[in-house]
Simulated assay, not measured.
Amino acid sequence: MSTVQISAADVNKLRQQTGAGMMDCKKALVEANGDFEAAVDYLRKKGAKVAASRQDRESNEGVVIAKATADGKRGVVLEFNCETDFVAKNADFVELANKFADLAIEQNPATLEALLALTLNGASVADVIIENTGKIGEKIGISKYEVVEGEKVVPYIHSNYRLGVLVALNQDGSGVDEAGKDVAMQIAAMNPVALDKADVDPHTIEREIEIAKEQIRAEGKPEAMIEKIAAGKLNKFYKDSTLLNQEFVKDSSKSVSKFLDETSKGLTVTAFKRVQLGA
């Protein structure tokens, strides 16, 4: 049995650094015979055990963070999950998600795996997540991570961190940032499946055509007319579901493409990402 005296100051110091509870910190210091670093390791290991024990839990709550670099040439969006809405609304949880996004902006990892391997405050992001699983008592983790580059990248966070959008445009200059935000809100609201007609997945096109044909047949239209009517329905799908061809939400008299060109001649979207919590 250890005879090392554990002071309240030591317990508080460990608590301040790790965020663990007072009793957990005291127990860690006792188990480590007063060795502060060993106590931190003890709490980290405890966190790892908590994380392992909660792998079967659902973590569909959380936050989505979207940010761009200072020069606006690159943006990142990530989804950081937890189990309950209560934790998702906690300021410390949101701050941790922002730290991960800031690190991604600074270090430019290309993939989620690369992001998890980056170092934050002396530990890998993966280990920081494990440590905080122990502190929070819920399964947490980064489930999605996307990067977009362009001449001007505009980030947008919608609905209290529940949805994030990145929009890359081919120009920068007067009015472009504001236009980018309008388009980001369009993407948040309308959820386009692709940027333009040519970007739609061929399987999606085939599916839409087959659905259209079945609908037309069910209406009793002549077989000779089916192909032509199906083509019209496909064009309607493009208008409804591809970003540049959608009606602009703020002015339905024009498409998103026309709105952008009127903002600045030749202005268009080159890429976008939309990440919705739990989707």
Rank of each mutant, 00 (worst) to 15 (best):
V148K: 04
T270R: 08
D172L: 00
A189N: 12
D196P: 00
K239Q: 15
E31H: 11
A66P: 00
L169H: 00
E223M: 04
G175S: 12
A198R: 12
N98V: 12
A198N: 15
E83K: 07
T111I: 10
T268W: 10
N245G: 08
H203F: 12
Q186L: 08
A224P: 03
L163I: 14
M185P: 03
S255Q: 07
E58A: 15
A70P: 01
R44Q: 05
L116Y: 03
D240P: 05
L234V: 04
G220E: 08
L244K: 02
D92I: 10
D41Q: 13
I216M: 07
M190W: 05
A114K: 12
I136H: 01
L163H: 08
K265W: 00
T119K: 15
K49T: 09
K27M: 03
A212S: 13
E58P: 11
I216D: 02
V200N: 02
K233T: 02
Y156M: 04
F93E: 02
E227K: 13
A179L: 11
D182L: 04
K99L: 13
A218N: 13
I216Y: 01
P192S: 10
E146F: 12
L14W: 07
L120Q: 05
V148T: 07
P192E: 04
A126G: 11
T111N: 14
V87P: 07
N81V: 02
E131Q: 15
N33P: 09
A110S: 15
N235L: 13
E151K: 07
E208V: 14
R217G: 09
V167R: 01
L116V: 11
D56I: 07
A70F: 02
A212N: 05
A91I: 15
A212K: 03
K45M: 08
D201E: 12
E206N: 14
V183C: 00
D41I: 09
A9D: 15
G137I: 10
Y161E: 11
I130F: 09
D196T: 13
T242M: 02
P192T: 10
H203K: 15
K27P: 04
E262Q: 14
A279C: 14
E31V: 12
A9H: 13
R74N: 04
A279N: 15
V63N: 03
N60R: 07
G75K: 00
V148Y: 05
Q171D: 07
V275F: 05
V256F: 03
R274S: 05
K197S: 04
K49Q: 14
K152T: 04
K27C: 04
S59C: 13
H158W: 04
D199Y: 13
D251S: 12
G232E: 09
K67L: 15
P222I: 12
Q171M: 10
A231V: 01
V167I: 09
